[in-house]
């Protein structure tokens, strides 16, 4: 995946260190190796590789991860612009 990098500095992923209990569940589900647990806390070591799939947030037992779950799909985004976020389906 090293050949494929997308825009940097845009991903909305945030880890709340206060809430994180360091269980590591989020690392396991991430398809881009974005997260690591360092000193008992999860941190994004490769923030720009995050595709906002939401797997980590969905499986964090402490609710420590927040992001705007988006679909990285132009057709979907055009629909959300036209109709708003509700009532739109992706691919």
């Amino acid at each position: 995946m090293k050949d494929f990098r997308y825009l940097s500095g845009v991903a909305s992923l945030r880890v709340d260190e206060e809430k994180c209990v360091g269980c590591g569940d989020c690392l396991e589900v991430c398809p881009h190796g974005v997260l690591k647990v360092e000193k008992g806390k999860a941190t994004a070591v490769d923030h720009d590789a995050c595709m906002e799939c939401g797997a980590c947030a969905k499986n964090c037992p402490a609710g420590a991860i927040s992001l705007t779950p988006g679909v990285g799909c132009a057709a979907y985004i055009i629909q959300t612009w036209l109709k708003g976020r509700g009532g739109v389906s992706c691919c």
Binding site: P31, G70, G72, C73
Partner: peptide, 20 residues
């Protein structure tokens, strides 16, 4: 090409929106 973002496994929604 921009539409192809939806078929890839590495583009984030925030990124695609910015690009668009």
């Amino acid at each position: 090409a921009m539409n192809f973002t939806g078929a890839t496994p590495f583009t984030s929604g925030s990124g695609v929106e910015k690009e668009m």
